[in-house]
């Protein structure tokens, strides 16, 4: 089976309510899927399904990863960075859990790429919303994962940071990566396909 993500007839239920049903798409290296739609339509649910954090109520989700890269990196609402730690240290914790021998270098590079290198010694709790988002993005970049799952990555980002996000995702795709981006803000990604979730109601 070739590398990629294939969803067939995917359905999700939360709290007894059908969030979406019969969703089919496929994603291959170098491709991005932009998931759009109004609030509460199941964008985050779809991201969590793809992350394996939820089980689909219907349909199947087949993901074939490459053995040389971590399969998934997730950027979600919660940053999962310890507030009392300096930013660099908080990110290195995750890089070490990823089993990266070059954790320090990877984190330093990723921080520079989201323009937070100057703040690597500042405790996470002192960061602003946008800075925290960029820090979470830096973790995704540092993971080197094959599939990026970004849930509202542009929330709280200014124009310059949004442009940087687009560049980072574009480079990830060029390197054979895949991305699923749930957003209600307009994002320009090359060669992206859009999956517009409508309310099943």
């Amino acid at each position: 089976m070739s590398v990629g993500l294939v969803a067939t007839g995917l359905g999700a239920r939360r709290g007894g309510r059908t969030v979406f049903a019969d969703l089919s798409f496929s994603l291959h290296p170098g491709e991005a899927l932009l998931v759009t739609g109004p609030n509460g339509v199941g964008k985050s649910t779809l991201i969590r399904l793809c992350a394996g954090l939820l089980q689909p109520a219907a349909g199947t989700l087949d993901y074939t990863a490459t053995p040389d890269r971590p399969p998934v990196a997730l950027l979600a609402e919660a940053a999962a960075l310890d507030g009392e730690l300096p930013l660099g240290e908080a990110l290195r914790f995750w890089a070490r859990l990823d089993g990266r021998a070059d954790a320090i270098d990877r984190v330093a590079t990723a921080l520079a790429e989201v323009d937070l290198a100057a703040l690597s010694t500042v405790p996470v709790r002192l960061l602003s919303t946008g800075q925290r988002r960029r820090a979470a993005l830096a973790r995704v970049v540092a993971s080197g994962a094959l599939l990026w799952l970004l849930d509202e990555p542009a929330n709280g980002l200014d124009a310059a940071a949004t442009a940087r996000l687009e560049v980072l995702v574009e480079r990830h795709l060029e390197q054979g990566g895949m991305a699923i981006v749930a957003t209600h803000l307009p994002l320009r990604l090359p060669g992206m396909r859009t999956l517009a979730l409508g309310g099943v109601a």
Binding site: G52, A76, A80
Partner: peptide, 12 residues
């Protein structure tokens, strides 16, 4: 609340 368990779970 901070999503730490999410991040651990996706790391297998």
């Amino acid at each position: 609340e901070a999503g730490v368990f999410d991040q651990l779970a996706i790391r297998g």
